[in-house]
């Protein structure tokens, strides 16, 4: 009897947690397919429509250009941050340079500063450089935000790789860069992939800097969401449709890569 109770108790708790986590998401998905008049209704009985998606991609919302901005900013940021961070992480992990610990602390310490504190200096800086409302400005800012984090993450993965294989490769005739390319990167691939996704998600969801530094041309998806708060009130159905556009790519990416994750993680060490 007691066992049965625990069994049911566990299930009930799981259902409760799932509801709390999944309710807002499913509500967003539902609303995205509702007509404006159904948006505030709690009934599940409504006629689904794709109108909202059509609307958000046409004037005056033009979600298409925001998707483009978000994709470009996120992809370019990852493409620059991850290779640089990998090399930096390797150096921090392997080279015993004087002041190494301090330097590493310095890099991490950039993460201690609240974004709100530096957003204004960034604004002034980019204004004087004429870079306000450009993707370049957002890429630069995002690089500054994610690179330290990615260095720290990848360093953890590289630290876990035994140096034996690297030394073996050096003796077999490989230069340091060749060792990184042939041995370290393949072995650290799962970690680097994980870090890349984190980096992508961070950049994709970045809101504050994008809000302050963009006006019209470089607006990204999260900032675009705000524009659905109009004088006519909050356009929930459109906001939800745009929300789905933000969420879906991350979902798909996570699903695609999930397999690689586990396989990569376990294929690593050989003793």
């Amino acid at each position: 009897m007691k066992k049965l109770l625990t069994w049911w108790g566990e299930r009930a708790l799981l259902v409760l947690i799932s509801v709390v986590v999944l309710f807002p998401i499913s509500w967003m998905f539902l609303t995205a397919f509702k007509q404006p008049r159904d948006a505030y209704s709690t009934s599940l009985n409504f006629t689904p429509t794709l109108d909202n998606f059509v609307t958000v991609f046409s004037d005056p919302w033009n979600l298409g250009s925001m998707v483009m901005n978000s994709v470009i900013v996120a992809v370019v940021t990852v493409a620059i941050a991850v290779p640089c961070a990998s090399l930096a992480a390797y150096s921090f992990s392997r080279f015993r340079v004087r002041g190494r610990k301090f330097l590493f602390f310095l890099i991490l310490s950039t993460q201690f500063i609240p974004a709100v504190v530096i957003v204004l200096p960034f604004f002034l800086m980019f204004r004087s450089l004429g870079l306000l409302d450009t993707r370049l400005a957002l890429i630069i800012v995002n690089l500054a935000i994610v690179t330290p984090f990615v260095i720290w993450m990848i360093k953890g993965f590289i630290d876990a790789i035994p140096t034996d294989s690297e030394e073996a490769a050096m003796i077999d005739g490989a230069s340091r860069l060749r060792v990184i390319k042939d041995i370290v990167l393949p072995m650290a691939a799962p970690g680097i992939l994980t870090s890349s996704i984190f980096c992508f998600i961070l950049t994709w969801n970045e809101f504050l800097f994008a809000l302050i530094l963009s006006r019209r041309d470089a607006v990204t998806l999260p900032v675009g969401l705000v524009s659905f708060r109009t004088e006519r009130g909050d356009l929930w159905e459109l906001m939800s449709a745009a929300g789905v556009m933000i969420t879906v790519p991350i979902f798909i990416m996570a699903l695609l890569i999930q397999k690689h994750f586990t396989r990569g993680m376990t294929a690593g060490a050989v003793k």
């Binding site: 034996d164 073996a168 050096m170 003796i171 005739g173 230069s175 340091r176 294929a267 690593g268």
Partner: peptide, 20 residues
């Protein structure tokens, strides 16, 4: 000279194989 230019071969205690 770096290890690669010394023309040596080494066997490591933990083998140092390339797992991938």
């Amino acid at each position: 000279k770096p290890p690669k230019d010394r023309d040596i071969a080494m066997v490591f205690q933990n083998y140092g194989l390339y797992p991938h």
